[in-house]
Design a protein around this nucleic acid. Structure first.
Lengths: 91, 91
DNA sequence: TGCACACTTAGATAGTTGTCTAATTATACA
DNA sequence: TGTATAATTAGACAACTATCTAAGTGTGCA
């Protein structure tokens, strides 16, 4: 939960997730979309991986990243729980 | 969006939101629940207020905070959009 | 075998964050 | 009026974060 919200905190990382929604991408492809060095992107990808928001597979020289949505269910539940009115509450 | 995720990043702030789900609370009541000074709690409340996750009303010497869930819809939408399968995608 | 390319790791650094103590503001009430 | 209580503001500081450059690792291919 902590790792998840930590990962979602950063705009660059959120945009990476949005990009991966469309299709899997290599580090280079992701990197090209940002005005930022590849090591910096690598750092963000690592952080996303630790939060289990993405997975990586190696293909020759390339590393392809995929979006992993399972862990998002948790955050969804937490937010929904906050939004929903407490029921059966008598004044 | 940025302010929102920034606010949700911190465990103390998330717990404050959970507390406010049950009922409105004064700064003192919130502060009592944490091993942390009142100024620190005040700092967190201010941050939550800027993210529009809480609102504050003054009652004499006391300031009572309430949960505001409207802004959470936005994050909910963002996460849901990430989770949902892109439809009509032909391979 | 060795060079080029894709990516990660390491180390440095400026900026941000969460916490504290001390000082300030504002209200209640004797 | 003056003192106590509730909360915020200010200033300091250690820890964390996002970024960079430089160096390292691993794969492809001439």
């Amino acid at each position: 939960m902590n790792l998840l919200f930590k990962a979602l905190r950063d705009p660059t990382r959120r945009r990476i997730l949005e990009m991966l929604k469309t299709r899997d991408l290599t580090v280079g492809e992701i990197s090209d979309a940002f005005a930022m060095t590849t090591p910096s992107i690598s750092y963000h990808l690592d952080l996303l991986k630790h939060a289990q928001l993405v997975s990586a597979r190696k293909n020759g020289q390339f590393v392809t990243y995929s979006l992993e949505t399972t862990v998002l269910d948790e955050s969804l539940g937490w937010i929904l729980d906050l939004i929903k009115k407490p029921k059966g509450k008598r004044k």
